[in-house]
């Protein structure tokens, strides 16, 4: 199986559970989990695969550092 083009990480402690990223993600890979962070917010969760690295979730997220979007480095790109 080919690796995904993108991936994201979510800082669960900074997330406020607004759900804008869930709405923004076209492939529907984000959801609000049942888990609460220490502030009591339901945090957003990435399904773990399928991300294409489009970055829309990053743009709609109101928090500066909660979402980080990565892209796959093409093999040999930094060789």
């Amino acid at each position: 199986m080919n690796p995904d083009n993108g991936k994201i990480t979510i800082d669960a402690e900074g997330c406020k559970g607004c759900g804008l990223c869930v709405e923004a993600c076209k492939p529907g890979l984000l959801s609000l989990s049942g888990r609460l962070n220490h502030n009591g917010y339901r945090v957003a969760e990435y399904a773990g695969q399928g991300c294409n690295g489009c970055g829309l979730c990053f743009y709609v997220c109101p928090e500066p550092g909660v979402l980080t979007v990565y892209k796959l480095v093409a093999e040999g790109a930094f060789a």
């Binding site: 993108g6 109101p62 990565y70």
Partner: peptide
């Protein structure tokens, strides 16, 4: 993978001027 969208350099890494919860706005 390399990060393409991440926390801006123009933000403080930690919001130390904020009295509490310095990880979030």
């Amino acid at each position: 993978y390399r990060p393409v969208q991440e926390r801006s350099r123009s933000f403080f890494p930690l919001f130390e001027r904020k009295p509490d919860n310095q990880n979030a706005t």
